[in-house]
Design a binder for these strands. Sequence first.
DNA 1: AATTTCATGTAACCAGTTACATGATTCA
DNA 2: TGAATCATGTAACTGGTTACATGAAATT
Lengths: 182, 182
Amino acid sequence: MKQEQPVVSSLVLAIMGLLSQQPMSGYDIRKLFATTAMGHFSDSPGAIYPALKRCEQSGWIKGKVQNPESLRPRRVFSLTHPGRAVLKANLTQPITRDDIMRRPEELILRFAFIGESLGADRARPYIQELLREVEAYLSELRAQAKTNKDNMTIYGRLSMELGIEGYELDARWARRVLKELA
Amino acid sequence: MKQEQPVVSSLVLAIMGLLSQQPMSGYDIRKLFATTAMGHFSDSPGAIYPALKRCEQSGWIKGKVQNPESLRPRRVFSLTHPGRAVLKANLTQPITRDDIMRRPEELILRFAFIGESLGADRARPYIQELLREVEAYLSELRAQAKTNKDNMTIYGRLSMELGIEGYELDARWARRVLKELA
DNA sequence: AATTTCATGTAACCAGTTACATGATTCA
DNA sequence: TGAATCATGTAACTGGTTACATGAAATT
């Protein structure tokens, strides 16, 4: 029934998530990355066009030329059915400790795409899972801060505090989201 | 007078910052990455040992074998003088919008290393600069949220809110740091 | 006796960065 | 008319990931 789908990179996830909402060109994606809050993605053509090419070669997206007579025809991409399956599989992947520690922004991006493409019934359990994982990591971080507090400089302590408060913010946000989605 | 120094990657910055505090082996670094809050760095040997090799080839660090008779001798690295200069140059680089948007954790790491190796007199202006840049970006983000609030889904809005609150937390933290360092 | 930890490294692969290249169209 | 924007792409380089490999010492 459920096939194993490849794990895609943050960039590919972002591209496919955007294309799931509306077809767009590489240039459109670049502009979005350059001008909106999705700005932690590079808008460099050397990242985006090759990524689009790979996705197309994998059969996840399909480009359609809008102005065939032009020298540099604008190509508008949309998700294929297999592409939708890959996107969904990646969005609903379990949240790992590694995600929490190393790709927090990707987790928020996933939330937005889950909500927009799968609805609140999927977004809610996702946020519950996120909250659980964040709180588990938080208690580890707090324990670490406690045991290390004596052999830490003031700079180390302050940095650690910001890290902890960041995850505390995530947890509060997650609770707020659950309320708003109730 | 002031020479231009190469811009190093996050990983190399982290390694050199650690070595500036005390000499250690690749294995020590791996353990730190694997067990402490520096965990957003990969502890994979395939990342760390080649990075150490590159730094040594550039003359920024120097390894000293502790147990020469062993088959796999433990090599303890320390910063060289040129290495200190490279580290300092990288730590005191101006904070860019790109840093704020794409490498916030690196900015905090820089703060810790600046404090520990250059002292509070350097850490304070660094935090002031950080605060300025964060607030500048914050007002852009808020303006964006305002203009886009009508054509945004609830998921987009919630994600955006977390982003903004994250930077607000950074700003509050920066002000607290300035007080504590006063 | 078996497993975990200490300890260092390499090789193939892949994806992102930087820089380059092209050329039409629109705006100042 | 000159600059900015629209629009797509490639090539060389670099660095990180994954997986593999080795073997001693300490622990269970």
